[in-house]
Amino acid sequence: MKIGLMGGTFDPVHIGHLIAAQSVYEELELDEVWFMPTSMPPHKEQAPGASPEQRWQMVCLAVEDHPAFKPSDVELRKGGISYSIETVLMLRSRYPEHEFYYIIGADMVQYLPKWYRIDELIKHVTFVGLRRPGYETGCDALPAPIRKAVRLASMPQIELSSTGIRQRRAEGRSVRYMVPDRVNDYIEVNRLYEA
């Protein structure tokens, strides 16, 4: 099976994440896309606004209607800082027959040489960089072995971020239509991200 991996804090998960996953799912003809909320990402200083359990619940709600989108709590159960190489090696040992495609934003492609144990990581996964208008992937400047492990896929331009959604909530503004309806309901019921 060809499996797309989508990691992130998902604080909260929003329609941009789902559109990105759908774009790669179709373009690369994947069998499934697994959404993996991180416990603590290595590159973010600030703690997420929602608890790991709340972020997990929102991801489950966001993907429950899509037959090929699956929530995965592999990084949440591990706890601590989430390094992609550790997650991918764990998944490879559990599912040796699967091919894994790690989905990242166009802005992250140029930073791949700085990823922890990247030389090992590229042996186990293909990176899929999402092309967005106005963003240079920097793919051509990557060292050859890393460049060979990167495929580019396109997605519609969606100007949405979890940071912006949290900010809107803090200002008392609606995030309806920016997140799936069930996620919006969950955020409102649990009064997440309010000032």
Rank of each mutant, 00 (worst) to 15 (best):
A20D: 11
A47Y: 06
M40I: 15
T87R: 01
I165S: 09
G8T: 09
E159M: 10
P37L: 02
Q57M: 05
R151C: 13
E53G: 08
M90I: 08
G164H: 06
Y25M: 15
Q167C: 04
L192W: 02
K123A: 15
E86V: 07
P52W: 08
Q110C: 09
F69K: 01
F35C: 09
L76M: 08
S39D: 14
D107Q: 14
I19H: 02
Y101G: 11
A20S: 15
A149G: 08
I85A: 08
H124Q: 14
H124K: 12
I104A: 12
I85G: 03
Y111K: 12
K78F: 08
R77N: 14
E26K: 13
K2D: 06
V179D: 05
V63N: 07
D140S: 14
M1E: 01
P37G: 13
Y135M: 11
H14V: 03
K70P: 03
Q157S: 14
D73A: 14
M58N: 11
E194L: 12
K70H: 15
A50L: 09
V59N: 08
S82A: 10
G134Y: 00
T9R: 07
T38A: 15
K44F: 08
L28A: 12
L76N: 12
I3A: 05
G8K: 11
P67Y: 01
Q22Y: 11
Q157N: 12
V128R: 01
G8A: 09
G16N: 08
E64T: 05
I165W: 05
V74A: 13
S154L: 07
Y95E: 10
Y95Q: 08
R55T: 11
V24R: 04
I118H: 06
A50E: 02
V24M: 11
P37S: 09
L160D: 06
Q46P: 01
H43L: 14
I122R: 04
R92Q: 13
Y111E: 15
A149F: 00
R92Y: 00
L192C: 03
S39G: 13
D181L: 01
F69D: 00
T137K: 07
D185G: 06
S84M: 09
G134N: 04
M36Q: 13
G172L: 06
Y111L: 14
R168T: 00
A195Q: 10
S93W: 02
K78R: 15
E97L: 02
I85L: 15
P52F: 07
A50G: 02
G4K: 03
L192S: 04
D11Y: 11
L142W: 05
R176H: 10
S161E: 08
V59W: 03
V74T: 15
P96Q: 11
L130N: 12
K44L: 02
P113D: 14
T163M: 03
G8Y: 01
H43G: 10
A144L: 12
L121S: 13
E75F: 00
I19S: 11
T87K: 03
R168C: 02
L160S: 12
V88Q: 01
E32G: 10
I165E: 02
T163W: 00
E99Q: 14
L160T: 14
R77C: 13
Y101N: 07
